[in-house]
Design a protein around this nucleic acid. Sequence first.
DNA 1: ATCGGAATTT
DNA 2: AAATTCCGAT
Length: 161
Amino acid sequence: GGGGCPLLLRFAFPDWAYKPESSPGSRQIQLWHFILELLQKEEYQGVIAWQGDYGEFVIKDPDEVARLWGIRKCKPHMNYDKLSRALRYYYNKRILHKTKGKRFTYKFNFSKVVLVNYPLLEVGSAPFLLAPCPGGAHGPDCPPLTPEVLLGGREMGGGGG
DNA sequence: ATCGGAATTT
DNA sequence: AAATTCCGAT
């Protein structure tokens, strides 16, 4: 099954990043997942990279990031104006905020350094993959890599509450 | 460049 | 619900 969109990209990311598009309340990969994917890969250092404070990153080539995002979502008319609008929707969700005074610079609201030794992730240049798990990547104290863990126990989808 | 409302799409 | 499209204001 599945739509006919891009099959070119399969990153080492866990299942929650790829919920089936047809299931209720689910969608394709979210923009902030995609941003993390790019940040994780050294080949995109010239396009987007960690820079400055912890969790802070700069979009060095806005047009290129928008182009890549457009490819992923099959939106050939994607541009930075539209991509950045989607990023701004993350402000109220507390996923991102803008670093004021720094051009094209945003910051993830990571609450803690909790991402550790995850077997599916290339550690690479990500500054939040630092603390080792007490019992190793599969130990009892090593949290699973979920959006809640990533952003600090926040519920990502609405629902009752 | 950055922001955020509004309508629309998915 | 998340994103896309469009756009006036700062």
